[in-house]
Design a binder for these strands. Structure first.
Length: 319
RNA sequence: CCCGCCUUAGCUCAAUUUGGCAGAGCGUUGGACUGUAGAUCCAAAUGUUGCUGGUUCAAGUCCGGCAGGCGGGACCA
């Protein structure tokens, strides 16, 4: 039990609340869920949550992935029809990332218009202030000079999703935090037990922006070609000696060290020759400016090409 | 339902009281400099001026209609 909790907490920002997690772990068939707005590209930011879901899967959780087509629609991403096509592509990406056959993929529009569901949304609407609903969307809402009423329905639906999917854990990136907290407050009022909320860190964009996001083009997609990976990393923001907010250091933390003890860096003799660095050594060496950004970039490029190989091969086999 | 205002490059905005070749900053792209990127310097690309009809030699600019947005009024006896 303690061991499981330790694994679950690994490389997350927070677990709310840990005591409740213990209860969940003692259940027979616990359910973990994450919702994704269908997106033109599935990138490394998404991959962080998918890897956590894979981990939960190995710990005995039933995984439900919500392909939140209605949410994307409410967020102004296109027509429901267009979005559901993208959802199908996203599903393939998720499978390519290694979620197993027991994973359940659920299209939001399949259940989000049912009478009971809708009634719960209306109930919640009477219990939630406009400002609170708007505020919860701070990090999620598409930028809009003229915000729509839809953006306030969104968090209400996300709350009711948790009840409808009967999840014990709601996993998401840190940008989901305010909605998740709204949900934990709202669900008891509707007579439901709120899930344990687990938040994973946000990856900085390759351009150094606060957040990797599909709308800004500052991401590596999980199905990018080897050439695209090389080119994107080559162009990435990577100040020498700076660890904080450095997307390449973050990629090493999240996509190399969970699987390898040492990061292997191939470096020309004239710059000091090859290196093998543990996570701590990488932070220290790079932070002192003793590892050139280009050597780091080359190393990360090799690892990412290998890490994403299964996804590329899976996607190719599907088309 | 009525009145007023707004709509120009990907973004923010210019374009002379009085119609005369549609511009800048940011961003993007390319080069220079760096053993990366960024910063800096140099260079380039980018437009159905919301749509539509009219006036005029000539319309972003004036007139009509429409759409979207913002604000107000009215309705609530």
């Amino acid at each position: 039990m303690e061991e499981k909790i330790k694994i679950i907490k690994q490389s997350t920002v927070e677990v709310i609340e840990e005591e409740e997690l213990k209860e969940v772990l003692s259940k027979e068939d616990p359910i973990a869920y994450t919702g994704y707005e269908p997106s033109g590209k599935i990138h490394l930011g998404h991959a962080i949550t998918i890897m956590k879901l894979k981990q939960l899967q190995t710990l005995g959780f039933k995984i439900k992935i919500l392909l939140a087509d209605y949410h994307a629609f409410l967020n102004g991403k296109g027509s429901v029809e267009e979005i559901s096509e993208i959802a199908e592509y996203n599903k393939q990406c998720f499978k390519g990332l290694g979620l197993d056959e027991t994973t359940e993929y659920i299209l939001g529009s399949q259940f989000q218009t049912q009478a009971e569901y809708t009634n719960n949304v209306y109930q919640l609407a009477t219990l939630t202030t406009l400002k609170r609903a708007r505020r919860s969307m701070d990090m999620v809402s598409r930028e809009d000079e003229n915000p729509k009423v839809a953006s306030t329905i969104y968090p209400l639906m996300q709350t009711v999703d948790m009840a409808a999917l009967e999840c014990d854990i709601a996993l998401g990136g840190l940008e989901q935090r305010k909605i998740q907290m709204l949900a934990r407050e709202g669900l008891p009022k509707l007579g439901f037990k709120p899930p344990v909320c687990i938040h994973t860190p946000l990856l900085h964009g390759l351009d150094g922006a606060d957040k990797m996001s599909s709308s800004k083009g500052n991401f590596i997609a999980v199905d990018d070609s080897e050439e695209e990976i090389k080119e994107k990393i080559r162009q990435s923001y990577c100040p020498k000696g700076e660890v904080e907010g450095n997307p390449l250091i973050e990629i090493a933390e999240h996509f190399v060290y969970p699987f390898e003890d040492k990061l292997i860096i191939e470096r020309p003799e004239k710059f000091g020759g090859n290196l093998e660095l543990s996570q701590e050594e990488l932070i220290e060496t790079y932070g002192q400016g003793n590892l050139h950004p280009m050597d780091l970039k080359n190393a990360i490029t090799n690892y990412m090409i290998e890490f994403l190989r299964p996804v590329r091969e899976y996607m190719n086999s599907q088309s």
